[in-house]
Write a protein that binds this DNA or RNA. Structure first.
Lengths: 194, 194
DNA sequence: TACCATCTTGGACGTGGCATCTAAACCTCT
DNA sequence: AGAGGTTTAGATGCCACGTCCAAGATGGTA
């Protein structure tokens, strides 16, 4: 597989919004027209339509992985770090709404590609799992099974982000964080003093 | 659209497992062969391949809606009812793993069908939202925004269920519930007395 | 400049799967 | 027995994907 030129990658990512409706209904010619990259050129770099999708998803997830890593400051305490990671994930979903929706809408195809599945894990699941495991060990968090708790958080954050995108068209990261982080922190149990 | 005979519906649901790999890679002829329903007959009842998928998803979701409604006993207190609803959802995912995965893998296609989206809402989101709203009003739950909290729970439960199916091949409802219900209830905050 | 490898692109083409159509059975009533 | 709905096999049209080719552009090197 040839290395995709940066200019072309940008053109593709910029037009991802056109394809959100339904990947199956998008023809290769549509992708060519929307991105300005001729069809023959697309096939020079990509082996199939699915390969184009995989490229866009991988690129989006790689950026997310970086953004999450950058947001996680090892100097802070664990609850702060967890909140920062969740914020970064939400914020990234809001920044690349089209590719994010593309990812969710095509989990089936994405799941078949091992590297995409690994990228999802690296961006969403693994950072959270690590923080939870650390926190369970040093008492910063209640002792929960890190694996399952991480999955729960991943599911909650992703679906909430997606729902915001579908309903509002964008994500108000501050407002959403303010809602959900305390919920993760304190649960649904009523305040003792209330 | 003609009413699908019950026998045929059962045949289709029974063979859903064959199609999990990737709906796109399944040909109409494969569906015919696997289910024993001839191709021409399929087209007598369904207008397209997508329509067959929609039918299976709708049927699965309708059953889930019923199962959740049946599990929710209005005589119990709200935390118990919420736990029961979550159990029912998990249990149903485990009972129909093939269709459940089919649903998640094809959210994109499902999203195009408004009635499927409504059915997802009716099965997963709405029952939880109602309980949370009630609980916030009468003090059984901490006062959270029911809309967002319901989405969070829906995301967490669904993704956890799916992950169990992918990794273990089945869902141990008791074990999973025992893990996540306390987590939803008490959050990640360490026990005061710990 | 001349040359070569790589990239870029338009257009023609083969293939395979979806969906349609037809017509022949096959019920199940009345 | 006749009418109206159902079930089915097979032929066909169509459309999108992916392949191929041949001609130009580009850029580095002798």
């Amino acid at each position: 597989m040839r290395a995709v030129p940066e200019a072309m990658a940008e053109k593709l990512m910029a037009t991802a919004g056109e394809f959100v409706a339904s990947w199956d209904d998008v023809r290769i010619d549509d992708i060519a027209a929307a991105s300005g990259v001729p069809r023959a050129t697309l096939y020079y770099y990509f082996s199939s339509k699915e390969d184009i999708l995989a490229f866009m998803l991988r690129r989006m997830l790689d950026r997310l992985t970086e953004a999450v890593a950058a947001a996680d400051d090892a100097d802070d305490d664990l609850p702060t770090r967890l909140a920062a990671v969740i914020r970064a994930q939400l914020s990234h979903l809001g920044e690349y709404p089209a590719t994010a929706q593309l990812l969710i809408s095509n989990l089936g195809k994405a799941g078949k590609l091992p590297d995409i599945a690994a990228a999802i894990n690296a961006s969403f699941h693994e950072p959270v799992r690590r923080l939870l495991a650390q926190g369970a060990a040093d008492g910063s968090f209640r002792s929960v099974e890190p694996e399952m708790a991480a999955t729960a958080l991943y599911g909650a954050v992703t679906i909430i982000g997606l729902r915001c995108l579908l309903i509002d068209g964008s994500i108000d990261v501050d407002a959403v964080s303010a809602q959900i982080v305390p919920m993760f922190w304190s649960g649904l149990r009523p305040e003792a003093g209330a």
